[in-house]
Design a binder for these strands. Structure first.
Lengths: 197, 197
DNA sequence: TGTGTATTGTATCGCGCGATACAAATTGAC
DNA sequence: GTCAATTTGTATCGCGCGATACAATACACA
């Protein structure tokens, strides 16, 4: 009965996410989003609501996308796979695939004053997801006996999330050489040292 | 000959810094700064230049302040003191002293698109300063033989900066319990494991 | 105490922001 | 082909932003 959309909705979602990722929430204007999506303002409001709604959707899309990537890369393997995933993030290997620098969630967290509770809850949920993925990998090696009993899985997972977030924050500086990349080697070695054999 | 300033300049600088720290660069308006300093707009422009100038000054003040704190806490001691400083940052012990959550530099880094080169250079310089402080502490224990030769000081320092920045980013989320604080215990243990004895 | 200079207070300016009103265009159902 | 429903295009609106003009004020100095 009604007229159909003249554009691909998922493509537009991805374009909006990319824009927020590049410029941050406050730094992204509706005009920016029009240009990025090739849509007029009215269409954006029709399909995505207002600006806070759009940012919320971008947070959800980002969460889902990163979680899928992690699952694909670790896929029920243990610490070794986890170390590879984290090291790859620190080295910024996603950026060769055209991804913007840094992390939408870290950007949101460090500018929490400009956001609403519903946004911050998603950011917290994302951080918890990262922590949970780490715990799952650590649990696996604990069960198989590779991970010694002196390692506290809970706090170790939180520690690893700190490392990742810190590295992603540093990548925003876009220095000639990514200083966080050097830390990836230390991370691998540290995580290796946690194993018994 | 001229009339003298009707306010304390250093107090105003600190108030401006605090405001940028709380709300971020884009999130802080001239009206916010007027309220925070109890000054009128004209006085702000007279004493500090325009908004980018003010932010630049805040970055400098922040750098200098943190560096002084680190120096006072480590003061030519080695890894043990370094671990305490980093752990304290992760646990957010500064916040009990009335400091805002997070870190002005991390906030600036993760919103680099809104800043000018001169700002980003200061942020990079700050990160290098942190890295240098870590190297100095590691060097000290390397010289005394406590730090084994398998530890690469350069990349280890970068790794530690990642940990700190990630923890400070997480603190902006203001959760009931600071998740990064749990990571502090892991950091202490990890740094201890680097020592030979 | 007068005088000149810088600071302070008041009142804007122009601009871009997020958001909306409303008409024109487009599409599926009958 | 006609109608109803929805999307798209154009033209704004009100607001707060950073920034400034200009007069009034207050202070150091002669």
């Amino acid at each position: 009965m009604p007229r159909s959309l003249g554009f691909n909705l998922e493509t537009a979602r991805a374009a909006i996410l990319r824009e927020f990722w590049l410029r941050g929430y406050e730094g992204t204007s509706l005009t920016d989003l029009e240009r990025a999506t090739s849509l007029v303002r009215t269409s954006l409001y029709n399909s995505f609501g207002n600006k806070p709604d759009m940012f919320l959707d971008s947070l959800k899309l980002y969460h889902q996308s990163v979680e899928a990537q992690i699952d694909a890369a670790t896929n029920d393997r243990g610490i070794d796979a986890l170390a590879e995933v984290i090291a790859a993030m620190m080295e910024g290997s996603d950026r060769t695939a055209g991804q913007p620098a840094g992390c939408l969630m870290v950007s949101a967290a460090t500018h929490s004053a400009a956001l609403e509770d519903r946004h911050l809850q998603l950011v917290r949920g994302y951080r918890q997801m990262l922590s949970r993925k780490a715990r799952t990998a650590l649990d696996r090696d604990r069960a198989s006996g590779r991970l010694g009993p002196t390692i506290d899985i809970e706090s170790t997972a939180e520690f690893l999330v700190c490392v990742v977030w810190g590295a992603l924050a540093a990548q925003c500086l876009n220095e000639g050489t990514n200083p966080a990349a050097a830390g990836a080697a230390v991370l691998r070695k540290t995580m290796e040292s946690w194993l018994d054999n």
